[in-house]
């Protein structure tokens, strides 16, 4: 299981990486916005995407839409971890096909719960 973490703040990428490691996901790779994430995704081998919303270059919501529009990537599970908390934004992300939405600041327990829920759904399909 290889996970791509996309956030413009290196501290937040590090926090997410450490939390994922505690959950048993040791294989992670990082990108600092949608534009740097896309070549990594296109190169293949990524099984799960964790992304922030507000980033320079390409924002997380646009990265999500690009992923869903690409036949090679369209089924990739996407978890959004963001400080964006407006209802319109959450609805937009849901409609764009996000698999989970976590608001910052968040806890290790929330991250674990959402990731487990996403895998439960995928396995049930």
């Amino acid at each position: 299981m290889k996970i791509l973490i996309v956030d413009d703040f290196s501290t937040m990428r590090r926090i997410i990486k450490n939390l994922l490691r505690d959950l048993g996901f040791n294989n992670t790779i990082e990108a600092d916005d949608g534009l740097t994430a896309l070549p990594i995704l296109n190169a293949g081998g990524i099984d799960f995407l964790v992304t922030d919303w507000n980033m320079p270059g390409m924002q997380g919501i646009d990265l999500l839409k690009t992923v869903r529009a690409d036949p090679k990537l369209s089924t990739l599970p996407v978890l959004m971890v963001t400080a964006e908390t407006k209802r319109e934004q959450i609805i937009e992300a849901a409609q764009a096909g996000v698999n989970g939405y976590i608001v910052k600041p968040f806890t290790a327990a929330t991250l674990k719960e959402k990731i487990e829920k996403i895998f439960e759904r995928i396995n049930a399909q």
């Binding site: 919303w53 507000n54 919501i61 400080a83 964006e84 407006k86 319109e88 934004q89 937009e92």
Partner: peptide, 12 residues
Amino acid sequence: DPLKAEGPQINA
């Protein structure tokens, strides 16, 4: 634009 990213909300 209601979708514009604003970062953490002050006085949410």
